[in-house]
């Protein structure tokens, strides 16, 4: 497999909520087999970007070519077919609360394949074992901890052996040890299966561990794409602040803000 050939190309993507532009001309490429991290602060539009990439939000304009198909114009059946070749892990893991963990993981197989129930059982078991949840198949999602739910979500997203997987804030809300475990799992999935991974996060610790390349998002625009080393050499003031964990300028020192408080001017 050619590692440099692009699996996902985003061109000049614009997303609007009403009159508010959330993503403004975003372009980047994801190469087959790499882990690309979309890094940005709160409100930078990174979750919106991910939801647009998987087709949950319709963009205002622009192109998203995923595995050779333009996601923005695909019809129902073709879109569903494409979706069986990708996986997504949601921030809250989004396991179906009414199904056991094993049934959650088996769901795509039951819906999209005609495999025997026994085969489905074995494949589900393998994936659960891979993410470290062997023996938890009969639990309901509500009985699992946050980290275990994330792992179950990863098992479900990879059960169809997808070519690309999207993670939305995989380590958000987890303690550092559990978060590191999830990071290692993401790396493991990529190394074991050559699984292309697109990870949205704001955690610098994760980025250092998992990223081949980083796409930095600020105010709905891409401010830099490259390895972490390349980004650290950028002169962009916001990138420098983000990477070195410096706060924004104190809002209280802004003269306009002071004037607005006193009502003068």
């Amino acid at each position: 497999m050619e590692r440099d050939d692009p699996i996902l190309e985003v061109e000049d993507l614009v997303v609007r909520y009403g009159h508010r532009t959330v993503l403004d001309g975003v372009s980047f490429t994801v190469r087959r087999g790499e882990v690309l991290v979309i890094l940005g602060g709160s409100g930078s539009g990174k979750t919106t970007l991910l939801r647009t990439l998987v087709g949950l939000i319709r963009p205002h304009s622009g192109r998203i070519v995923l595995m050779g198909e333009d996601v923005t114009t695909l019809s129902g059946a073709r879109r569903r077919e494409l979706r069986t070749r990708m996986g997504m892990c949601f921030q809250g893991s989004a396991l179906l609360g009414s199904l056991t963990v094993a049934d959650n993981v088996a769901l795509p197989l039951r819906e999209h394949t005609d495999l025997e129930e026994s085969t489905i059982g074995i494949m589900t078991g393998i994936k659960l074992n891979l993410v470290g949840l062997a023996g938890f198949g009969d639990y309901l999602p509500s009985q699992l901890s946050g980290g275990m739910k994330k792992r179950a979500g990863i098992a479900r997203a990879t059960v169809m052996d997808p070519e690309i997987i999207f993670y939305d804030e995989p380590s958000a809300g987890l303690d550092p040890i559990v978060a590191a475990g999830i990071d290692r799992l993401i790396r493991k999935m990529q190394q074991a299966f050559g699984l292309t991974s697109v990870v949205v996060t704001h955690e610098m610790e994760s980025v250092r561990l998992i990223a081949d390349r980083v796409c930095m998002l600020h105010g709905g625009r891409v401010v830099g794409v490259g390895t972490l080393d390349e980004l650290e050499r950028l002169e962009h003031p916001w990138v420098r602040r983000f990477l070195s964990r410096q706060p924004d300028d104190e809002p209280g020192t802004d003269p306009d803000f002071l004037r607005s408080l006193t009502g003068a001017g």
């Binding site: 939801r51 809250g92 179906l96 609360g97 769901l107 819906e111």
Partner: peptide
């Protein structure tokens, strides 16, 4: 409604399940 809040409906969509 709860499934909608927990992104379970979105998860179904992304898995290609109507």
């Amino acid at each position: 409604g709860t499934m909608q809040v927990n992104e379970e409906i979105d998860a179904l969509e992304v898995m290609g399940i109507d």
